[in-house]
Design a protein around this nucleic acid. Structure first.
Lengths: 265, 265
DNA sequence: TCGATCGATTGATCTGGATCAAGGCGTGCC
DNA sequence: GGCACGCCTTGATCCAGATCAATCGATCGA
């Protein structure tokens, strides 16, 4: 549904999601721990790019990571209009991308979890068409896009990966553009989030929403009150447990059924 | 707004749009006429890829065109689930892409004019995630995607072009996913269509809608009746003239203002 | 400890656009 | 020519979700 995209995966993560019922889970971090000893700090030694590439590719990508940056909650990774130079792999934290239209209304484009990539929509206009804000303290690996393209020229696997990355995000965006009910959207959103966490090695049923109700609402094209109401309804239907931002998917199967039109489509 | 994308442009078109007030315009065809003598019939000799590449690239791309196909109105170029092998450049006619969800509801993803490319959203799933139907008799150049990728590996310009193509479509899809009123959507849609026609050398203010009201409605997430009503309202406001499917943008400036949140964003 | 502030929930009401319904109009076919 | 079928338009009504409003915590700084 959303941009479930990663550069080569960063999937070597082994971190356990220690969430039990509704305690605060550890802030997810994409860190492989070992696996070629890359992606340790994502600084010089890390590329957050592991699975699927050989050592040669790894070493090359490795050199691409220009810079690892940390941002505090609320800080901007980039802003609308900034010249496009690089894409960013989220290493820790969650990012929201959004744009403010001519009327001053905000439109949330997406939420990005550790292991996912932001900035791909900037390639065409050659400027960032949206803002990217850290919803929690976050870390990123910054990849120079020109350098990455050059590498892609030499390594077909990298090129292919980039194509797939953008194409995947295109598919997600198109789906979200469709006409669906509030329940369908919410269910699909929750299941999708769960699956993305699960893909990173975290719990797919117990997690913390790092964004406000307002952000969820905006993303799903709903009002914040509607999001609240749907949560309540889903709770009385034993589909989920919500406690503030802590969330438990109690019946992922039924949720998936509700949101099926938007999922895996 | 929509996928205003072309492979290298096909822009050498010189065809005049002979539409006066509301007569039937010629069916737009992307044909450069001369310019390296490519893209004549788009068969063996044409690649529909011209501007920006040197002769070498042209010659190479040229060889990529596997196949030129003609479709009658209503025929499918590809269907949901078909294995992804190639992308298609529209040479003539208009194409609608759409998907049918689990509930059986259709969701129109986009309309593609001559010079634009369909199939890019199939890269990731490696299958076409939607149907593509000719809304009028149409012609396409078919490019093997593996071959194109291989070429992109050798020719950075081609790679860059592909990245931009997908990224552009991603931007359009995200915009459309936002929350806007019926008027904003319609105005933006009309202006965007006009601009895309204009970019191909046709009139940007006098053109024929090749899709039904129902298709426009579905694309804009509205009911067909609403599209009709907005047309009527825009007409009484002297913004447009509509006569069946013939359309005149009488006040593009004001239209653009109405749809500005969705345009050039 | 006390406000103050901000986010979330819940209730009451409103409304943009959907849905239902009834013609009109053009086009093609017999 | 005339009929039938699709598409489009227009009017009447309905409803999902927005908006307005009130309350209830949390969190936080003084």
């Amino acid at each position: 549904m959303n941009a479930d995209a990663d550069i080569g995966s960063c999937t070597a993560m082994r971190s356990e999601n220690r969430v039990g019922k509704l305690p605060e889970p550890p802030s997810p971090i994409a860190d492989d721990g070992d696996a070629e000893h890359f992606c340790h700090t994502c600084a010089f030694s890390g590329a957050c790019i592991a699975v699927g590439y050989g050592k040669k590719e790894l070493a090359e990508l490795h050199c691409l990571v220009e810079h690892v940056s940390s941002y505090r909650e609320g800080e901007y990774v980039f802003r609308t209009g900034d010249p496009f130079r690089a894409i960013y792999a989220v290493r820790a934290g969650t990012v929201k991308t959004s744009l403010v239209d001519e009327e001053g209304r905000e439109h949330v484009l997406g939420f990005y979890l550790p292991g996912e990539v932001i900035g791909l929509n900037a390639i065409y206009p050659d400027r960032f068409p949206c803002d990217a804000v850290a919803l929690e303290d976050a870390q990123f690996c910054r990849f120079s896009f020109p350098a990455m393209s050059a590498l892609a020229t030499r390594l077909p696997a990298v090129q292919q990966h980039l194509f797939r990355l953008i194409s995947k995000e295109l598919g997600s965006a198109s789906l979200l553009a469709g006409d669906y009910s509030a329940d369908e959207r919410m269910a699909a959103f929750l299941v999708d989030l769960g699956e993305r966490y699960a893909a990173r090695g975290f719990s797919g049923t117990h997690f913390r929403l790092s964004m406000s109700r307002g952000d969820v609402a905006n993303y799903l094209r709903l009002a914040a009150e509607t999001v609240s109401r749907v949560f309540s309804r889903f709770r009385t239907q034993a589909l989920i447990d919500v406690n503030g931002r802590m969330l438990v998917l109690r019946d992922p199967v039924r949720l998936r059924k509700i949101g099926r039109s938007l999922l895996s489509g």
